[in-house]
Amino acid sequence: MVKVQVWGSLKPALEGADEIELEAASIREVLDQLSDTYPAMKQAIMRGVSVSVDGRMYANAIMVPLKPDSEVFVLPKLVGG
């Protein structure tokens, strides 16, 4: 199972859970499941998110494959100077 954590302002969307576990083989599958399960997440994902997989950051990339025990963080979409 892939462990997924979600950034602060969307934590309430997970209805109290700190971390959820999912069967997912890619970032896309994680985001799809979050969107389907939690309506508040759907909006945020459409606005854009950055995703960290096992310590590596991905902005706007959904095809990244996950390992069965990957650690995934869904974070605010990063902007820079």
């Binding site: 950034w7 602060g8 302002s9 969307l10 934590k11 309430p12 605010p76």
Partner: peptide
């Protein structure tokens, strides 16, 4: 304000709360 346990009923200048 977004990001609170309950969305407030009154508008304010606080757009969102984040926690890490």
């Amino acid at each position: 304000t977004k990001g609170l346990d309950k969305t407030p009923r009154k508008p304010s200048n606080v757009a969102e709360r984040f926690e890490f």
